[in-house]
Amino acid sequence: MTYHAKVIAGGKIVIPSELRHEFGIKDGDSLVLTRDDAGGLLVRTFDQAIRDSQRKAREMFGADYTVDQFLAENRADWGEV
């Protein structure tokens, strides 16, 4: 389904209420805006952006890769113990 949003004074975007309810967007929530590969604008909730980043990290490093492993590898590269 396609929705229409209007830009009002100060560059504010009015998101249709149906979408706000569907995605749980409330007053004061943070949204992440990104240019997509086709030159469009992608709007995601902060939680969606975090989940996307976590998925990409799992794809790059594997599901079992930990922050501790990352830090240990980088400390070794930096000459730290």
Rank of each mutant, 00 (worst) to 15 (best):
G11H: 08
T34W: 01
E80L: 06
D29C: 05
T2Q: 15
F46N: 02
A38G: 04
I50M: 09
G11A: 15
V81R: 14
V7G: 05
T66L: 12
N74P: 00
A5Q: 03
A9H: 07
H4S: 03
T66A: 15
D47I: 02
L42Y: 14
L42Q: 03
T2H: 05
D77V: 05
T2L: 12
A76Y: 03
L31T: 11
I50C: 07
A49Q: 04
G10E: 00
D52F: 00
E73H: 08
F23V: 04
V67H: 09
I25P: 03
Y65A: 15
N74D: 09
R58I: 07
E59C: 15
S53R: 09
R58M: 08
R35K: 04
R58W: 07
A5N: 02
D64M: 13
G28R: 07
Q48N: 07
D37K: 12
L42K: 07
M1K: 08
F61M: 06
L41H: 00
A57G: 11
G11L: 10
W78Q: 13
F46W: 07
I13P: 10
S30P: 02
K6T: 09
G39S: 05
A49L: 00
G10I: 00
D37V: 14
Q48D: 15
D64H: 12
R35D: 08
R55N: 11
A76T: 09
D36Y: 12
